[in-house]
Write a protein that binds this DNA or RNA. Structure first.
Lengths: 260, 260
DNA sequence: GACCTGAAGAATGTCGACAATATAACGATT
DNA sequence: AATCGTTATATTGTCGACATTCTTCAGGTC
């Protein structure tokens, strides 16, 4: 697997524009720990505002404090943890004053994603959007099952993440991943965080339809209005009408280990 | 500075909606090292593809390997460094196959930024855009001075970063910061990376004017076309006409230590 | 009773050392 | 001549220990 062999392969097979196999990338310990931490935050095991004692968490993960601290810095960079000098790590709390900013960032990423998807050639579009359609069905099923708000929220976030992931843009996917976890943190940071709008299905059905029809700007506008209403609701400016279904945290996992 | 005092101050002064002073946040060592590393990459001291030997860099910074490794993980999360298990850290190379993705991400962030700025009330807008106007003047001056391509590129990136920073959205600012450094890495990753279009001033003058006129969508379209032409040029699809001014790296600093 | 001051405790920040691994150089082999 | 296997070197990955800092709690004071 050295350059000499590469040159030889080049001679035998001619120039390759696309690598034959994905380069094997054994995940480092830091990768694995970071995934665990993200899952713990997303899953509600590490609640917003709670302190993360290094020795305790490290022993639970079966590693030393060193690798744990290195992984923690990744989440600090993501805005999922904060590290005060001398006071250690805490899970961030996404206050109401942060909600507008958070959703503005999400709109930037996800709006660009839906426009990109809608702008694809119909054939390409269907291939990319296929997975997203499954995620929409999952949301549909969660709502039909009368699942608790937590599962519905999961399906919703899965769908929004899937929209960005469908573009194939790893940078935007990584950014979306961070923002999605922060959205979950915002929900966990407030009582009544898991209030689900009854028209959530309609909104997303409209969105999917606009993407399929190639109406990118309309799709983005749908997203913008949806986010605006969500922000208004979270800020308490809006009164009614909502179906308030609150739910408890379970141990569901969500893998965000897709990085560029 | 404890909660009891806070309550007392609340009684004396009444409820405060906005904190009187910014909470003092002494930067941690990891923060400082991360800034140094980013500056070294942005400034060309750490070139794309070069390996970052921990002991060497740590001793140069006057710290131990521990804090350096923690800081490095932040840059890994940003996509500025890669860490292969056992092989240590390397500065990423932004290949031509990454350029389209990178600029798509930049368009998502910066496009949303210019639309946001253009959508502000004229009074607010002028207050926010003021700094950006200075950055545009700096770009103007750099071009007038016949500065080398590197300085012009600096001014260009400063301006683009300033557009996002002007929104006041710390999350989007952090993401823009990462993408700007990656853009610099893309330039450093290729020969002829510092080729500057002659019409760069016109494009940005148009952009600034559209923002000032509240024409957000037009401004975003200007940005999109500008990025598209840049990508086409970097991919070698476009032949002419360009003024090719190449420059050398100097020790200029760029502070990206603005995080949420 | 509330507030300030100080000390005890616990957690973090940093460092050095050791083991594990990847890289490079060298020689042997087809 | 090129490739494979082996060895030596250097670097990384991990851990434990110590100094430092923050937090907490008790005591004293206004």
């Amino acid at each position: 697997m050295n350059e000499t062999q590469d040159r030889d392969a080049l001679r035998r097979n001619g120039p390759v524009t696309r690598p034959l196999v994905n380069m094997v990338r054994r995940p480092s310990t830091v990768d694995l720990i970071a995934v665990e931490l993200r899952n713990a935050i997303y899953g509600g095991t590490l609640l917003p505002g709670s302190s993360v004692r290094e020795a305790e968490v490290a022993s639970q993960l079966g590693v030393s404090r060193g690798p744990l601290r290195e992984s923690a810095q990744r989440l600090v960079q993501e805005g999922l943890l904060v590290a005060r000098p001398g006071a250690g790590l805490r899970v961030v709390t996404v206050g109401v004053d942060q909600v507008a900013e958070l959703y503005a960032a999400r709109l930037a990423i996800e709006g660009a994603a839906v426009r990109h998807l809608a702008g694809l050639e119909p054939a390409d579009r269907e291939r990319h959007v296929g997975t997203v359609r499954d995620l929409f069905s999952a949301l549909e099923a969660a709502l039909a099952d009368g699942s608790d708000a937590r599962r519905i929220g999961d399906a919703d976030l899965d769908l929004h993440f899937g929209l960005v992931e469908a573009t194939g843009n790893l940078r935007m996917t990584a950014m979306a991943s961070t923002l999605i976890v922060q959205t979950r943190l915002a929900a966990l940071s407030h009582r009544d965080g898991y209030v689900v709008r009854t028209d959530i299905l309609d909104v997303h059905r409209t969105l999917m339809g606009q993407i399929s029809d190639g109406e990118g700007l309309a799709a983005e506008r749908t997203l913008a209005e949806h986010f605006q209403q969500t922000v208004d609701r979270l800020l308490g400016r809006l009164e009614e009408p909502f179906s308030t279904v609150t739910g408890e945290a379970d141990g569901s996992h969500f893998s965000f280990n897709r990085l560029p």
